[in-house]
Amino acid sequence: MLKVENLKVEVDGKLILKGVDLELSPGKVVALMGPNGSGKTTLMMTIMGFPRYKVVEGRIIFKDTDITNLPVYERVNLGIGLAFQRSQSIDGVALRTFLKKIAEKRGVEVDIDGIANEFNMGDFLDRFVNKGFSGGEQKRCEFLQLLVLNPDLLLLDEPESGVDLDNIKLIGKAINKILKREVTPQTEGTDSERCVDKWKLKSALIVTHTGYILDYVKADEGYVLIDGRIVCKGNPYEILKIVEKYGYRRCERCV
């Protein structure tokens, strides 16, 4: 699904990512951990394709296509969806109108009221996008937008930060709904059959500090990013335990 190769990225002339390799197979969920300022958000933003994040070396492959130089909206069209760590408010634009526009753009029909109510956002549809929303409400709003976008690759930047436990559960439910996780991944059938279905197995890259979200969304693999480099790869739940006990210092030795 996604392959990041030797990615080096500069922001405002400063090298932040110093050669990141990462691979995400269809149907897999990968947790990305690492200390503050290590470059997790930078990696997400670069995969999404924002021009401020300059790729100086390496490439990004998505669904067998080199997307390193594609504009953001084309990546969205290909099926990448990002939940921002920090969202933006848009004055004068009602959430309902906005979601309708997103659906139109994606060429999908969505029961906006239905999903908004399912995720406790029904009362927000007539308010301006994120305007005056609390931290947790903003996060739910991110997921409401992602539910409409229905991407194949989810990039989730700290989906649970600032969210109470009940709502973490709700966000977990939203993620599983997008990932179609209630359906078990199909591994049977001939190669060509699987090939057709290949991208229907959705993937996610989740940045998390606490790992709470991983109680609701099962992660298959964990990566640790320190100072712009992947230093550790393994069972995400094990990594979290070690980090909790010894801090990230222990991870540095993992290499």
């Binding site: 504009p71 953001v72 969205v76 933006q88 848009i90 526009k101 753009k105």
Partner: peptide
């Protein structure tokens, strides 16, 4: 703001 434009671009808009 640049951030607002980026936010909308991530929703598929040019």
């Amino acid at each position: 703001s640049e951030e607002e434009i980026e936010y909308l671009m991530a929703r598929g808009f040019t």
